[in-house]
Design a protein around this nucleic acid. Structure first.
Length: 499
DNA sequence: AAAAAAC
């Protein structure tokens, strides 16, 4: 992870309003707090990082910060988060990490290693819910780049008993890259705690050596579904002391076209051994279908949701360009992006592994230095390409949706949709994937831009319109696909180019 | 007609 902190949005207090309502007996009005201190976001890893707050007195409920002025800072969590708590446990938003009763070792990790100053919005609200007994389940939605990772990583670390050398916390991720990235965050944040952790992805511990390996003694395990299932099936991962299970990108982990079967299986196996375990579901997106399913599946959970219209990141400007032919998309990338100079890093998303190779080849043949990642590459190759990009050794990365979710590289300022995201079965827009791709830019409130490259013929224009309508987002059109001036003014408007 | 995980 980068230790450098580049420009962080700072500014006067930004506030947002958070509503808390309660299902259950008590319905008390929420209290209002206004944040007036300066806000400074710490360097964030993947999806998030932050801290938590604590639970304070058991008064009524929670949490509400009303706000007035629009924030002048590009804070990703500027919009409302609707909180619904289950039962009568009162929670108070944590405005400081000190409110969370964390161990001194963990606090040191937050301040010294992570360089955090104070909890982000989602952290302030969710951490008390995660940490406070009776440790109810949590379904939490928050914006891309707003600090979700910190919520669940801190949640896991704070719940582990360091003296018990057994797996106690488990985190399931949709890709190996995300598992690795989350592990990096966990090790950094937990650096002074002595808590042990292990990644469970196919690449490690394989083949003949697997059968002979000792059962996991690491206290936190982060991995991908297949490998975790395998470890469990072979009794390498004991569940007896598991007290917390986290699903990163939870909507995808519980979608029928995602990892629902694996996820349900793992939940069931843990529940059989430990009925009182805690489940945390985190994602920036929960469409109505998945939301309904998870609400029925993870019962009596505390819930945090963001309205669809509030989900788009204000700091990331979106544009669309209609290209007459497929080849013109390559021309756009070549003339308008590769020749731009210094605007930070770029990710070009494509639909298939074959397109990834094609686009890569086309640009490479023109002499441009680009790299690409997709799921057919060897794990070593994937790791190498991703690491080079994270180390800023490469500027332009072509990727399939392997990297659509969760991938945290703060220097990504530009996202290009070479192909629009659509659902496999229906051809309908994949709204969630679109939002996640956009979220690869503008991490933690940074400025960014998205160029959607649409083909003149076909469904692209309709797909784009539906996405605009769905999020109520403003997507400006670049009228002439080959007009350098238009791209430049777009990038200036997005704040990526100087006047 | 697919991205991803992994058997």
């Amino acid at each position: 992870m980068a230790d450098t902190i580049d420009k962080l949005p700072t500014g006067e207090a930004s506030s947002s309003s958070v509503e808390a309502s309660i299902t259950g007996e008590n319905t008390e009005p929420t209290t209002t707090t206004t944040t007036t201190e300066k806000t400074k976001w710490g360097d964030v890893e993947d999806d998030d990082e932050e801290e938590a707050n604590a639970v304070s007195e058991l008064n009524s409920l929670s949490i509400k910060e009303e706000e007035k002025h629009e924030s002048i800072l590009d804070e990703p969590e500027d919009s409302n988060i609707k909180a619904v708590t289950s039962g009568d446990t009162p929670y108070t938003s944590a405005s400081r990490f000190e409110d969370l009763n964390l161990s001194p070792e963990l606090m040191k990790g937050l301040y010294v290693e992570m360089k955090f100053e104070k909890p982000s919005k989602i952290q302030a609200i969710s951490l008390p819910m995660i940490i406070t007994p009776p440790h109810k389940h949590l379904i939490a939605q928050a914006h891309n780049g707003s600090g979700k990772t910190t919520c669940f990583v801190l949640g896991m670390l704070s719940r582990v008993d360091p003296s018990l050398r057994q797996p106690q916390a488990l985190c399931i991720c949709p890709t190996r890259e995300l598992a690795n990235q989350n592990m990096e965050v966990l090790q950094k944040m937990g650096k002074f705690t002595g808590i042990t952790a292990e990644v469970a992805v196919p690449e490690s511990n394989q083949g003949a050596t697997f059968a002979r390996r000792a059962p996991v003694s690491a206290q936190v395990v982060i991995g991908t579904p297949g490998t975790l299932k395998k470890w469990m099936a072979f009794k390498k991962l004991g569940l007896n002391h598991l007290k917390i299970l986290v699903f990163d990108e939870a909507d995808h982990m519980l979608a029928t076209d995602g990892f629902r079967d694996d996820s349900l299986r793992i939940m069931k196996d843990i529940k059989r051994v430990n009925p009182n375990y805690q489940v945390l579901l985190f994602s920036a997106t929960f469409n109505e279908t998945v939301k309904d399913f998870v609400q029925r599946t993870v019962e009596s959970a505390n819930q945090l949701f963001v309205k669809r219209e509030d989900l788009a990141l204000d700091s990331v400007k979106q544009y669309k360009v209609v290209c007459p032919k497929e080849q013109d998309k390559i021309e756009v990338i070549k003339d308008q992006i590769m020749e731009l100079g210094d605007i930070g890093q770029t990710i070009i998303f494509v639909k298939t592994k074959v397109s990834a190779s094609k686009v890569h080849k086309a640009l490479a043949e023109m002499g441009y230095d680009v790299t690409s990642v997709h799921g057919s590459m060897s794990q070593e190759e994937r790791d190498k390409i991703v690491k080079e990009f994270k180390d800023c050794l490469t500027q332009v990365l072509i990727a399939t949706d392997v990297l659509a979710r969760g991938f945290d590289q703060q220097r990504v300022n530009l996202v290009v949709n070479y192909n629009m995201p659509t659902k496999y079965e229906t051809g309908e827009p994949d709204y969630e994937v679109y939002l996640h791709r956009v979220g690869r830019a503008g991490r933690f409130g940074r400025k960014g831009a998205v160029f959607n490259l649409l083909l003149e013929n076909g469904d692209d224009k309709e797909v784009m319109e539906k996405i605009e309508r769905y999020f109520g987002a403003q997507v400006k059109e670049i009228k002439s696909w080959n007009s350098e001036e238009e791209y430049k003014s777009a990038l200036k408007e997005a704040g990526l180019l100087d006047e």
